[in-house]
Amino acid sequence: MTPGEITIRETTPADSGTVFEVQRAGFGYDKEAELTAALLCDPSAEPVVSLLAFRGTEAVGHILFTRCRVENAGEPQPMLHILAPLAVVPPYQRQGIGGLLIAKGLQLLRERGTELVFVLGHKEYYPRHGFVPDAGKQGFQAPYPIPDEFAECWMVQALSVRGTRVPKGRILCADTLFRPEHWRE
């Protein structure tokens, strides 16, 4: 599949059912789909970047970036986001669609002034898209403690030179995501 066969656009409220179905199909269960639906309704997650990928008229992938903050960093807070979740429907997995969604999302975030993006994810996948493993070693603790054996899965990517100078500390995410069950494997 070539990138030209895939179109990506920002979601609208009318896409909520499609987003839910893509997340459900991509993960094979409802947990991430329900989390996504809740995050899209959570004012503490704003501003969000929510993107759908299509092959023709078929929705084949979705990615969500929600706002986060550094605890005790003062005001004004730098613009930071967390990537969660990313889903591609099974027939289209391992064809580069996730990477296209990540790239488009990072481009939009950069254009909108986001300085850092975090993700808790697969330690071999996300570094291929510019994420640096073990954000904790760089001074950014996850919202909840990450066991040492998974420390490399908590990652960060600077989207600007200013991002390298963001105050360090614990990352506080949207209320919906700020629950211990979302930070354990």
Rank of each mutant, 00 (worst) to 15 (best):
M1Q: 11
G4F: 06
E10M: 12
E10N: 13
T11C: 15
T11E: 15
A14R: 14
S16Y: 05
T18H: 07
T18M: 08
F20N: 11
V22M: 07
V22Y: 08
Q23A: 15
A25H: 08
F27Y: 15
F27T: 08
F27W: 12
G28I: 11
D30H: 09
D30N: 13
K31N: 13
K31W: 01
K31C: 01
E32F: 01
A33H: 09
A33F: 04
E34Q: 14
E34P: 00
L35A: 09
T36E: 03
A38L: 09
C41G: 10
P43T: 09
P43R: 05
A45L: 07
P47D: 12
P47G: 11
S50N: 14
S50V: 02
A53L: 08
E58W: 01
V60I: 15
V60M: 13
G61S: 11
G61V: 07
H62G: 03
F65H: 05
R69N: 10
N72Y: 01
E75S: 12
P78M: 04
L80V: 04
H81F: 00
I82H: 03
I82M: 10
L83D: 06
A87V: 04
V89L: 04
P91A: 09
Q93C: 08
Q93W: 00
R94K: 13
I97F: 02
G98Y: 02
G98L: 03
L100R: 06
L101T: 06
I102Q: 05
K104P: 00
G105P: 05
T114Q: 02
E115H: 14
E115F: 00
L116C: 12
L116T: 04
F118G: 07
F118L: 08
V119A: 11
V119C: 10
L120G: 06
K123R: 14
Y125F: 14
P127H: 07
R128M: 11
P133C: 09
P133S: 09
D134A: 13
A135N: 09
G136A: 14
K137C: 10
G139R: 06
Q141F: 01
Q141N: 09
A142F: 02
P143S: 12
P145F: 03
I146Y: 02
I146R: 03
E149P: 00
F150E: 14
A151H: 09
A151N: 06
C153Q: 13
Q157P: 01
A158I: 04
R162I: 00
R165C: 04
R165Q: 14
R165M: 11
P167D: 10
L172Y: 00
L172F: 00
C173K: 00
C173M: 03
T176N: 07
P180G: 05
P180F: 03
H182C: 05
R184E: 13
